[in-house]
Amino acid sequence: MAVLNEEQTMLRDMAREWTTNESPVTAWRRVRDANEPAGYDAAVYGEMAQMGWTGIIIPEAFGGSDFGWLSMGLVTEELGKTVTASPLSASAAAASAIMLGGSDAQKAEWLPRIASGEIVATVAVDEGPRHDPAKIKTSVAGGKLSGTKTFVAEGDSAGLFVVAAADGLYLVAGDAAGVSRSRRQLADFRSHAEVTFADTPAEKLEGGDDALLDSVLDRAAVLAAAEMLGLAGQAFDTTLAYLKQRVQFGQVLSTFQALQHRMANLFSEIELMRSAVEAGLTALDQGGDTRAAASLAKAKANDVGHLMSREMVQLHGGIGMTDEYDAGFYLKRMRVLEQMWGNAAYHRDRYARLSGY
């Protein structure tokens, strides 16, 4: 477990208290039932901005707190525990692209607006059903960008896109000419839009090469893993509480040794997941080559998240299959996050290649 300083501990505790009291799972149920394309409550995101969460990784010179990626991960984990919907992670990943590769003018134009929560930003990379940056065909000619991006997180409400083209990363305003969006409903009921750019004005990021794309994707993947850690941890706690009070065959379920062994295994796996995720977040803060740490974090999160969400439903028995119970929310969100920014097979293969195999 990462050693937190006093400020990080206070941030985590504040996020935990806020999500528990102001954004429980019942709040997500209301967002789901509203069935709006944005997939989140704008007023709630405004509260996050007021608390400074939208500027955690943005430098102070541009309106942020420059509090680091581990701090961002702590907040993201707490949001995962209550399945809170927000564009916080997507905006952070997009902001990182501007921070790493943007010009002074681009930073001054966009980072303060992201830090204040004025706009939602997102990263548009994939062009097929699976994450594969090697197959990008989006092109730019004469400052005009053309291509289609599939399953863009927060694509329905984004005011800024960081778009991966064949020759680098570009900034595209959400209201620019030639931008069209089509809603795509996935199991988690969040925003995953197909976004088409047709001769759309675009600005290239100065450092928009393959190394920059890798760095941005590392940050997106590790934040997804942090959310999955929150989902898995809460799924474990909820399942354990259920086993301690559910009576079957005249006995409390938690007294059955077979179930005790399964829960002990899940606890151990989640602790390993935590180590990998926090190592990934720490690597982002330290800088340098973050690829191996990011792939290890996402691969482990995918494996353990899949296992824990499946076990949550199964160990709850029939009630776990009902919409009235919360177990399904954790499983559905986990399945979508597993595929975002690379599934377990993708990241194991990437990790092996980075290790020389």
Rank of each mutant, 00 (worst) to 15 (best):
residue 106 Q to H: 06
residue 208 G to R: 01
residue 282 T to K: 01
residue 353 R to T: 11
residue 198 A to T: 12
residue 157 S to W: 02
residue 128 G to Q: 15
residue 127 E to W: 05
residue 350 R to H: 10
residue 174 G to N: 06
residue 8 Q to G: 10
residue 299 A to V: 07
residue 276 A to N: 08
residue 68 G to A: 03
residue 337 L to S: 00
residue 79 L to S: 06
residue 200 T to K: 03
residue 162 V to K: 03
residue 351 Y to V: 13
residue 299 A to N: 05
residue 301 A to P: 03
residue 99 M to A: 11
residue 291 R to N: 04
residue 292 A to F: 04
residue 4 L to E: 06
residue 242 Y to C: 08
residue 302 N to A: 13
residue 230 G to E: 11
residue 288 G to F: 05
residue 84 T to V: 10
residue 21 N to P: 15
residue 89 S to V: 04
residue 25 V to N: 12
residue 305 G to F: 02
residue 346 Y to P: 14
residue 245 Q to T: 08
residue 244 K to L: 14
residue 121 A to F: 12
residue 17 E to M: 01
residue 282 T to G: 04
residue 164 A to P: 13
residue 138 T to K: 04
residue 154 E to A: 13
residue 278 E to Q: 03
residue 335 R to C: 07
residue 58 I to R: 02
residue 354 L to A: 12
residue 33 D to I: 04
residue 56 I to L: 12
residue 210 D to Y: 01
residue 138 T to I: 15
residue 168 G to F: 00
residue 24 P to Y: 07
residue 138 T to V: 12
residue 42 A to V: 10
residue 259 L to A: 07
residue 106 Q to C: 08
residue 52 G to W: 00
residue 154 E to H: 10
residue 6 E to Q: 08
residue 350 R to A: 09
residue 48 M to G: 14
residue 333 R to K: 11
residue 2 A to T: 06
residue 73 G to F: 03
residue 121 A to V: 09
residue 209 D to N: 02
residue 199 D to R: 03
residue 136 I to F: 04
residue 180 S to N: 07
residue 114 I to R: 09
residue 300 K to N: 09
residue 74 L to A: 04
residue 171 L to G: 11
residue 156 D to A: 09
residue 355 S to E: 15
residue 242 Y to V: 13
residue 252 V to P: 10
residue 281 L to Y: 01
residue 242 Y to W: 12
residue 147 G to D: 11
residue 230 G to C: 05
residue 307 L to K: 13
residue 199 D to I: 02
residue 137 K to A: 15
residue 286 Q to D: 13
residue 277 V to P: 07
residue 267 F to M: 09
residue 287 G to F: 01
residue 221 A to P: 05
residue 22 E to P: 14
residue 357 Y to F: 15
residue 311 E to D: 10
residue 154 E to K: 05
residue 170 Y to D: 15
residue 17 E to H: 03
residue 344 A to V: 06
residue 130 R to V: 14
residue 164 A to Y: 06
residue 262 R to Q: 12
residue 152 V to L: 12
residue 188 D to K: 00
residue 253 L to T: 14
residue 121 A to E: 14
residue 52 G to L: 04
residue 267 F to W: 12
residue 314 Q to M: 14
residue 293 A to Q: 09
residue 46 G to I: 00
residue 88 L to C: 00
residue 78 E to N: 04
residue 17 E to Y: 01
residue 89 S to P: 01
residue 212 L to R: 08
residue 127 E to C: 07
residue 44 V to W: 11
residue 6 E to G: 02
residue 279 A to C: 09
residue 31 V to F: 08
residue 62 F to T: 12
residue 212 L to K: 06
residue 34 A to K: 09
residue 202 A to H: 06
residue 347 H to E: 08
residue 150 T to D: 11
residue 57 I to R: 00
